[in-house]
Structures are given as structure tokens and as C-alpha cells.
């Protein structure tokens, strides 16, 4: 946990004044006897991007879904610094409150864009949905903001009335991102956001994500098995193996000087690619 200590020293000045946006404490999820993830602890600060890496089956998605309220953890707390009431444990908050959070301050980008889009609704309607969900009742405003967001994710305004089924995979993923970010969330959960896309499409998407994260000062949790993704996007890394976090630290330090044997294996296998 050496890198983590460095991180704390690096950011000590900040942490004394800034509260964590998310505090994760002893999260555990089991599927029967099988461990999904266990003993997970970390803090995420405003504007920080945390990567969660590890091979397939290591518990990344389980953890992310527990944090985002899609799965109920068997133990632990997920304390989010809400705008209205300050830090609140989202595991025990009421379902309406949690659903409201996921429509406003939280965003979730699925690996498969179709899981996160309404395929029977136009691109504009997809982006506008969250605005309408929080009470925007002015068509002109909603449409203007939908078109603005299409531009920000590099989709032509002329596609605003097309259904996402007519879009390429990369466009669908960008639309999903626009639809999530339109309400100005503070925390974005992403599960393999570039998975399943062509390499060149991936690169463009990563560029775009990096720009948006910086510009909007987003905090994000990005699950991926692709170390290139976290190299580009994440300030900090968490390495998972068999449901446990085996190493955490600043991204460059973990990737360039991995301490845990498993991380060394993970990094070297990538370097060979």
C-alpha cells in the first residue's frame, strides 16, 4: 500500500479542506458461497478518476454495481457526499432517494450501449430523458441541450431525430455518454466503456472521455481489463484479484513499479502485447 500513502501525502493539502465525494467501506458481495468482492475500502475525491483493473472474473463489475446501487452488497457502506444532506450511506438510503441520485448526480455508462440507451427513442429523446426526469418541461430547451450534447460527443446535429439503432457502435457509446452527462452528474460509473469497440474507435472515445472528465471536473470509477485505458484516464488504480483489492496507488506508479506479484504479471502481459 506504499503508493496509496504517497497519494495521501501528495494530496494532503487538498484533503484537509476537501471532503471525499465517495467513501467505500468494507464492501462485500457474495453469490452463494462464491465471493464476488470483499473487504473493499477507498475514498474518491472530487475530480478524481479511479481505475479498477484485474482479469475477467476478478470482481470488478460486481464491485461497481454495488457502488452504483445496482446490486445490494452483503456488507459495507457506500457513503456519498450528497448536495442536500452531505455524506449519506447510499446502501441504506431509501430506494426513491437512490434512484433520484442515479438520475441526477450519478451516471452509469454500460459496456454495451444498448443496455444504456432506449433504442426505440431518437437520439434527442435519449439525451433529453434525464432532463425531463428531473422536471424540464420546455421542449425548446430540451432540444437545444440535446443538440449541444450531440456536438460535445462529436455526433452531427442532423442525427438528432435518428434512432440509435441506425448508429455505429462508437456513436452509440458516445450517445450513451451524452445521455448520462447532460444533467451534469458529479460521479460517473463506467464498466468497460471501450470494450467491444475497434481499436481506432476506442482511441477516439478515450480522447473524448478524457476531455469531458477534465472539462466537467468529473469524478469517475472506470472498470476495465485494458491497462491502456487507465493509463490515459485514471489518476489512481485499484488492482483486483479473486474479489480482493491487491494493490492501489497512483496510476503511473502502479503500472511502472508494480509491487504485488499479480500486478507485475498483469503489467508484463500487457507490455508483451
Amino acid at each position: 500500500m506504499r503508493a496509496d500513502k504517497d497519494f495521501r501525502e501528495n494530496t494532503r493539502a487538498r484533503t484537509e479542506t476537501v471532503k471525499p465525494l465517495l467513501q467505500v467501506r468494507e464492501i462485500e458481495k457474495r453469490y452463494g458461497a462464491r465471493i464476488g468482492c470483499t473487504g473493499v475500502n477507498f475514498d474518491l475525491y472530487p475530480g478524481e478518476v479511479m481505475g479498477i483493473v484485474g482479469e475477467s472474473g476478478s470482481g470488478k463489475s460486481t464491485l461497481l454495481n454495488c457502488l452504483a446501487g445496482h446490486l445490494e452488497p452483503d456488507a459495507g457502506q457506500v457513503i456519498f457526499d450528497t448536495r442536500a444532506d452531505g455524506p449519506v450511506d447510499t446502501v441504506t438510503m431509501s430506494e426513491p432517494e437512490r434512484r433520484m441520485l442515479s438520475r441526477t448526480d450519478w451516471a452509469f455508462v454500460h459496456q454495451h450501449a444498448r443496455d444504456g440507451l432506449r433504442t426505440s427513442v431518437s437520439a434527442g429523446g435519449n439525451i433529453g430523458e434525464r432532463l425531463m426526469a428531473v422536471g424540464d418541461r420546455h421542449y425548446g430547451n430540451i432540444r437545444e441541450r440535446a443538440i449541444d450534447w450531440l456536438g460535445r460527443v462529436e455526433i452531427s446535429e442532423t442525427r438528432v431525430d435518428d434512432r440509435p439503432t441506425a448508429f455505429s457502435g462508437g456513436m452509440q457509446q458516445r450517445l450513451q455518454i451524452a445521455r448520462n452527462l447532460v444533467t451534469g452528474p458529479r460521479l460517473v460509473f463506467m464498466d468497460e466503456p471501450t470494450g467491444g469497440l475497434d481499436v481506432s474507435v476506442q482511441a477516439r472515445l478515450l480522447d473524448l472521455l478524457r476531455g469531458l472528465v477534465r472539462e466537467m471536473g468529473l469524478s469517475a470509477l472506470i472498470v476495465t481489463h485494458d491497462l491502456a485505458v487507465v493509463r490515459l484516464l485514471a489518476d489512481r488504480l485499484m488492482v483486483m484479484k479473486d474479489g480482493h483489492v491487491v494493490e492501489t496507488g497512483l496510476t503511473d506508479q502502479v503500472l511502472d513499479d508494480p509491487q504485488h506479484a499479480y500486478t507485475q504479471l498483469l503489467v508484463s502481459s500487457v507490455l508483451q502485447v
Binding site: 438520475r103 432506449r118 438528432v160
Partner: peptide, 30 residues
């Protein structure tokens, strides 16, 4: 827009009616 009965029931109970306006939005845009 939401064929799942479990989900529509939840939407009613939590007064999550944004989807109704998505339908009207689609109408106007088309």
C-alpha cells in the same frame, strides 16, 4: 416505452414520470 411491468409499477409508485414526456418529445420532434 417501458414494457417491463415490474419497472412501470415502480415508476408509478415513485412518481417517475419523465418517460411520458419523452413520448411527447418524440411526437413534437417527428
Amino acid at each position: 416505452l417501458e414494457p417491463r411491468e415490474t419497472e412501470t409499477r415502480k415508476m408509478h409508485s415513485l412518481e417517475e414520470y419523465g418517460l411520458m414526456h419523452v413520448k411527447l418529445y418524440e411526437d413534437i420532434s417527428q
